[in-house]
Design a protein around this nucleic acid. Structure first.
Lengths: 346, 346
DNA sequence: ATGAAAGCGCTAACAT
DNA sequence: ATGTTAGCGCTTTCAT
């Protein structure tokens, strides 16, 4: 078992100084052709690679990005990570992943664990608990220490950092208008509580689309789910809540759901009640998941382009890390949504 | 913007030496109560945290684990990562994620990028391309340099490292026997090419279950999918191949698929052909995905306990890192599968 | 009880 | 052309 070789060992073997070796390896013209070749050959033979940690200490930068997300077993987030990793890798950066698990404490802990020199900057999406508590001191402290943050999807507006969001408002409006165009007269909304900004914005998009149509807004048609605990039995509760929605609105002929699971369960309920999809009732979900494509019928969705979000977030962060210039001026990038038509709409 | 404070700065402010500060912070009895309190108060005030990189360089260990997986947008892998992160975090370790994207070159690149001091050890699952080429030099080199590896799911037997696998053979046997118990007389198999070890083992499980039954093996009932490229149009090809399977076996009354997507598409084909599930034909998938639970009908599956695999892998690696003892002796842990009954079987 | 010095692996300014 | 030195931030052994 041959341990990794260091400059020091090479220097000793070849009977030169450490700095000579260092320079020779970096092709410095200060070094004679002779020793340069000798050193390089030896280094190659022993498969010398500079130690990243030593470089990080010296350069005061680690070339790694810390990513904190609420949950990894989730199509949207894993796709964002894929985008981040892809772009980071092409720029020579590594990616450390921390999971907050929707918990405030774990989010803080994870950030503290990484902010002590392990990474150059953060890309993160805020946990539900943090959003609910509205306690953002850990973000501010990190930023104040000179470590840049890029937030995506679940963001806070008045924070000194770049943001990448999907146009939730526009996406919902688009979806609801689509349902209206397809002849829906009574469109239900299945959404989350307002403290999740994306839920709030999607709800607003729904409302404005309905109102712009001159139609009156019917509160009965709006179902707000409290998903602060995401346990298993939650799904049964969810289903009965959706049952109730159908029961209260017998003439409902369209449903817009803020995620694909809600939409799928709603379709299931509709089918149970003997409704034909899309003939009797049409469905659209807001999502970037796998369920939609393989559901029966397949679900029309508003795509969030999660991977593009990840790439954009990584590119913003790396730009900021490598160009000290644009301090104090932060970008808010909006990723456009696309409506993907499948078989749950006419 | 106050940058992170260092021992040096504290020492200067308090007019003591760096080593005094260091000792004071670690509660050394060498230091007088007086200065100890003074230093600790000052450190707390300025929120001092030791620099991880410096510690890593000093201790020659980074307390971070490198994870290389073929794909992250995949329920199984993201669940494994969740398990790894969970356990790693409780032990004070961070997790760097690298994606091979099923490519040999990216796998090698990623490993080289991390093996130069950034991490203490690897947890990985081998890319399809690597399995096909059977080129494992990068694993051997890493191990030879004294960096431990733990492989999971897609593993190579004769490699000096710990392994965590699911009992693919046993799981398939269990599934096929279950179908037989439920009255199936003609059971189809939808699997992958043999170079993916999990596909091969699951196929063997199917075969032995059929043969143990005294039934004769019918090659017509076995469909091997070449999924070496996983593009979009692949799904249409997949569907037509499965159509063919049904066409060739009109009396098929059970299907075992080595993943949930194959099972779902098979169910779709069956439905199209007017077959009732589970009355006319029953289905089981091998998986740990979300599709199964929300499919119609929901799919009976063999669960792999992905998160448990991740936790076990992390625990094996950390044990090896922290106890130098058990060199040369490697474990192969087998995670039991569970059959989760849903509505695609009687 | 405190401090000086060496060392982890590397780079770079500054001698020679 | 080569070597010495200092320093990145920290711990620890060895003086004082």
């Amino acid at each position: 078992m041959k341990r990794k070789i260091t400059l020091k060992q090479i220097a000793k073997e070849l009977d030169v100084s450490i700095s000579t070796v260092s320079k020779a390896l970096r092709n410095s013209i200060e070094i004679s052709e002779d020793t340069r070749e000798k050193v390089q050959a030896f280094a190659k033979l022993y498969n010398y690679r500079p130690n990243n940690i030593a470089l990080s200490l010296k350069n005061r930068k680690t070339k790694t990005i810390g990513v904190i997300i609420p949950e990894i077993v989730h199509h949207f987030f894993s796709k964002v990570i894929k985008g981040i990793e892809l772009l980071a890798n092409t720029k020579g950066y590594n990616v450390i992943v921390g999971l907050s698990n929707e918990s405030f404490d774990k989010e803080v802990l994870n950030m503290e664990m990484l902010a002590n020199g392990s990474i150059d900057g953060f890309i993160l999406s805020i946990s539900k608990e943090t959003l609910m508590k509205q306690d953002y001191h850990h973000f501010n402290e990190t930023i104040n220490q000179g470590m840049p943050i890029v937030m995506f999807d679940r963001v806070i507006n008045d924070l000194n950092c770049d943001k990448v969001i999907v146009d939730d408002y526009e996406g919902s409006t688009k979806a609801v208008n689509f349902l209206i165009d397809k002849g829906c007269k009574s469109i239900g909304l299945i959404t989350t509580m307002d403290y999740v900004s994306v839920g709030r914005l999607r709800t607003q998009g729904y409302i404005s689309a309905i109102e712009n149509q001159g139609a009156e807004l019917n509160a009965e048609l709006i179902l707000k789910i409290d998903d602060s605990n995401t346990s298993e039995e939650q799904i049964d509760i969810l289903e009965s809540q959706i049952e109730q929605l159908f029961e209260n609105n017998k003439n409902m002929d369209g449903v817009f759901a803020v995620n694909e699971l809600y939409a799928l369960i709603a379709m299931k309920v509709a089918r149970k009640r003997g409704l034909k999809i899309p003939e009797d009732i049409q469905f659209i979900g807001f999502t970037d998941g796998v369920l939609s494509k393989h559901a029966t019928p397949s679900l029309t969705t508003v795509s969030q382009h999660a991977q593009a979000m990840g790439e954009k977030a990584a590119s913003l962060l790396i730009n900021r890390l490598e160009n000290e210039e644009d301090e104090e001026h932060f970008e808010k990038v909006i990723i456009e949504t696309d409506l993907i038509e499948r078989n749950s709409t006419k």
